[in-house]
Amino acid sequence: MAAWDGWKKGFDAWEDRTAKRLETALRSPRVLRPGGALLTAAMRSKSAVDGAMAAWWSALGLPTRRDQERAQHALNQLQSRLIDLEEEIAELRAERAKSKD
């Protein structure tokens, strides 16, 4: 077991050292800049493809994915608004019942 314990101690020390070095390297502009540029390029490509697909789809007069998302979000907002109103009605009823007492 002494061999394992020795190996583990050595590993822990190496891991700690390496993690610190990698953290410094990853924070460096030399890594962040190209990394960010690559991510942005990939995202813009995806947006362009999605946009072209949506334009083609809507040219057929069909609702796009974005249209559906907006409609679903509006429904969710309506649900929240209805719950708000239910809460207000319950409060008003409670106040009215209290004032009658």
Binding site: E23, L26, L32, R33, G36, L39, T40, M43, R44
Partner: peptide, 24 residues
């Protein structure tokens, strides 16, 4: 703070708009 996440999100090349347009 100077942590990686803060540094990354504050960096010029982190294009928030492009990412959200693409991924929602």
């Amino acid at each position: 703070d100077e942590g990686l996440l803060s540094t990354w999100t504050r960096s010029e090349t982190f294009d928030l708009g492009a990412m959200l347009d693409a991924t929602g």
